[in-house]
Design a protein around this nucleic acid. Structure first.
Lengths: 352, 352
DNA sequence: CTGAAAGCGCTAACAA
DNA sequence: TTGTTAGCGCTTTCAG
């Protein structure tokens, strides 16, 4: 199907300009001086013929590609596409092209993708989300390109990472609720082995309680063991069955609830409303993420917002620093903070 | 920085196996018979050495790449990343890798990106969103790869397209509102020269009125000329100033409003609520898109939902049909329908 | 059933 | 300031 007929190539340009391919190559790259007149003529001919250097051939020769590999657990994820947007904002204008594949949550899939991308001579691999395990990928990194993790951590140290301060973020959330006068602060979420982020958030909750001289109480902690694939439903169903169980709504063990994600918070919100519980009058709710949705729910959600696009920008800049910098430091770690967005799902608890 | 040290290559494998590179190549591609024992030995050695064929070198030779180029106006767009998700779901398991760049709304940028991607020997270009203009891209398609448009149309015919039935969708929306008893159905949105989709939607509105024997009334049509960069704000501000102008809310010219996008609808909704107008009691609202947000607003939004992921899946399958099919048809057109999602922002108008 | 060798379009070492 | 040429890792024609 595809025609084998090719575009005009460097040899053609050289011929038209009456110079050697080397000269054309150097006129293009600027890696050695070319007489201005020659250069001008070459560029003229390039323009005339709409010549575009062949990236593939160049890469085969240089083992570099101006390609940025991105492996993400899911592409259709507001936060992750925000990160990608940030990466592209910085690297796009510099001529980089993004090569993207998603690994789902299948173990080993990311490694398989990376092997392929490696053979594309990508200049950098950015991993967005995913498990702690990274050894395989590192072992296949035969060209020692920079590895940058976003929303993903690893015990291994031969990579850089842009990481949210999950623990402190949740501590801030607890502080904020306590400042509002809440003493009975609950937590809803999930944890899973080898999933760093949920664990870290929960740790923040416990630490936040301690800091505020509050006791952790199993009756206020709703922690599912294992992965949740739909936060909305999880939050919604959880509250529904909780309320069913306690029959009378008087007996809720908490006046404020820290939700591991905005999605969970929104599900919780919906269920509470359906049970005629008012947010924030009866229950204060705080989410995590700052997804678009959180602004438009009713009431709008107070949340710890993640600067996704900025994290992408930071990842891109980190890459540039690594390849341009003097130190060639390969394992930078950059901590990013969330912002507390105070909206309408939290309220001070005055009556006691 | 990057080590020039390379991976094990086909020559190494050939040497280890005691055969020629040709044989290894053919064992891999299956394009000519290789003695089973030889084949087994080759695969054994490949496995032992974690050999991964170099895509770059292969592409340079074959002018094909197993790369799918995607150019989109914006990557961080719920609908578009839904499309991309669908594409990847089909093509990922087949070994394709996505190469993505966004053009913003800069004229000509898509062409520049395509020239680059073309030199990467992408096997297919999928364009998600963007203007009608396509001639430049087509003229640079020197390898005659399939061009597939999603959420984008063009007068040119040397491409395939997956296109929503915008007009009929809006007609359905109008029908639905009329069935609910509404006679005063308004429209809010924008149009712009060379932007097919907004125009087509508006046309659907006018046609819907006609079908239902309703008159189009300039007082019910709120159409901004020119691009809107924030639908929420547009809808919100528009209603705010409208209500300010008419002073008394009694004099709204419509009892139901067709909104060009969900974003606009949500902005309108917010403004109406702030003016103590009840949706759907006072005003019925219908959106377009079916974005996540639309489900969680209060009231939840009745909307014509776009099957984004399915459109991506359809685009991917169209590509496969083109390259595998017998007819090699290069200009398929596939029409996709929206679904009317009846939720809580619309209500029958009984009193008159 | 298998190999040798040319060639894809570019870069860069070496030479001038 | 410029050119010659080998080579990147693969596919494929032609020849056995």
């Amino acid at each position: 199907l595809v025609d084998k007929k090719i575009n005009v190539n460097i040899k053609d340009i050289a011929k038209f300009a009456g110079v050697s391919v080397t000269t054309v190559s150097h006129a293009l790259s600027g890696k050695r001086h070319v007489k201005p007149e020659t250069k001008n003529k070459i560029f003229e001919i390039i323009k005339e013929n709409n010549y575009e250097p062949n990236i593939i051939a160049r890469s085969l020769s240089t083992k570099e590609s101006k390609l940025i590999g991105i492996i993400t657990t899911e592409i259709n994820n507001e936060g992750y596409s925000g990160v990608i947007e940030g990466i592209e904002e910085i690297l796009g204008p510099l001529g980089y092209i993004l090569v993207i594949n998603s690994s789902g949550y299948n173990p080993g899939k990311d490694t398989a993708i990376f092997k392929k991308m490696n053979s594309l001579f990508i200049d950098c691999l950015i991993l967005i989300g995913g498990p702690i395990e990274l050894d395989d990928i590192i072992s296949y990194n035969t060209r020692n390109i920079p590895l940058i993790l976003v929303n993903r951590t690893s015990s291994n140290s031969s990579h850089s990472q842009i990481v949210l301060n999950y623990k402190d973020s949740i501590i801030n959330a607890v502080n904020y609720l306590h400042d509002l006068g809440h003493e009975d602060i609950g937590y809803i979420g999930w944890v899973k082995k080898n999933e760093f982020i949920p664990e870290e958030k929960f740790r923040g909750y416990l630490e936040g309680l301690k800091i505020n001289n509050l006791n952790d109480d199993a009756n206020k902690i709703f922690l599912k063991k294992g992965f949740i694939d739909n936060g909305f439903n999880f939050g919604y169903n959880f509250i529904k069955s909780l309320i069913k169980k306690i029959k009378t709504t008087e007996r809720l063990t908490f006046t404020a609830l820290v939700c591991q994600t905005d999605q969970i918070a929104l599900g919780v919100l919906k269920a509470l409303k359906e049970s005629s519980l008012n947010v924030p009058l009866d229950i204060s709710l705080i989410g995590f993420g700052g997804i678009d949705l959180s602004e438009f729910s009713d009431p709008s959600l107070t949340t710890m917002s993640i600067p996704n696009k900025n994290m992408g920008i930071t990842a891109a800049k980190t890459f540039l620093e690594i390849i341009n910098g003097d130190d060639k430091e390969l394992n930078k770690e950059i901590i990013v903070d969330t912002n507390l967005l105070v909206r309408s799902s939290t309220k001070s608890k005055e009556k006691s």
